[in-house]
C-alpha cells in the first residue's frame, strides 16, 4: 500500500509528541482507543483566553494513527476553541490521503480533539 508523503513525514517526524499535566486547569485531555486494533491515542491541549496555545500527543498505534494525531496537534495550535471544534476527521483523512482501511484513525483523532475540548471546557466552567 502506498502512503502519501505528508503521512510519511508526520510518521517519521511526529510533531508535538509529549505530555502535559492533566490536572492543570488550563489543560484538556482526550484519551481514546480503537477496539478494532487496540490502539491508544492521547491528545492534550492547553487553553488560555479561549485560545489553544499548545498541543501535545502520545499515540500508541499504527503509522496512520500517529500521523493523524500529529497533524491534529499542528492544526490545533493557535486556534480558538470554536475553530478547533470545526476540525473534522475528513479534513485529516483528506490532508493525509488515508487509505479507506485507515479512515478510523482520523476518526480517532477527531474524537480525541472533542474529548480534550470538552475536558478543558468543563474544568473552566467549574472554575466559574
Amino acid at each position: 500500500m502506498a502512503y502519501s508523503e505528508k503521512l510519511l513525514d508526520h510518521y517519521n517526524n511526529p510533531r508535538n509528541v509529549g505530555s502535559m499535566d492533566k490536572k492543570d486547569k488550563s489543560v484538556g485531555t482526550g484519551l481514546v482507543g480503537a477496539p478494532e486494533c487496540g490502539d491508544v491515542m492521547k491528545l492534550q491541549i492547553q487553553v488560555e483566553d479561549d485560545k489553544i496555545i499548545d498541543a501535545k500527543f502520545k499515540t500508541y498505534g499504527c503509522g496512520s494513527a500517529i500521523a493523524s494525531s500529529s497533524l491534529a496537534t499542528e492544526w490545533l495550535k493557535g486556534k480558538s476553541v470554536d475553530e478547533a471544534l470545526k476540525i473534522k476527521n475528513t479534513d485529516i483523512s483528506t490532508e493525509l490521503d488515508l487509505p479507506p482501511v485507515k479512515i478510523h484513525c482520523s476518526v480517532l483523532a477527531e474524537d480525541a480533539i472533542r474529548m480534550a475540548l470538552d475536558d478543558v471546557r468543563s474544568k473552566q466552567d467549574d472554575e466559574g
Binding site: 481514546v32 482507543g33 477496539p35 491508544v40 492521547k42 502520545k58 500508541y60
Partner: peptide, 18 residues
C-alpha cells in the same frame, strides 16, 4: 454499546504502554 470500556481502562493501558 459496542465501544464501551471499563472506567479508567484506557489510562491504565496508556500507563503500561508508556
Amino acid at each position: 454499546d459496542k465501544k464501551s470500556l471499563p472506567k479508567n481502562f484506557l489510562f491504565e493501558i496508556l500507563e503500561i504502554r508508556e
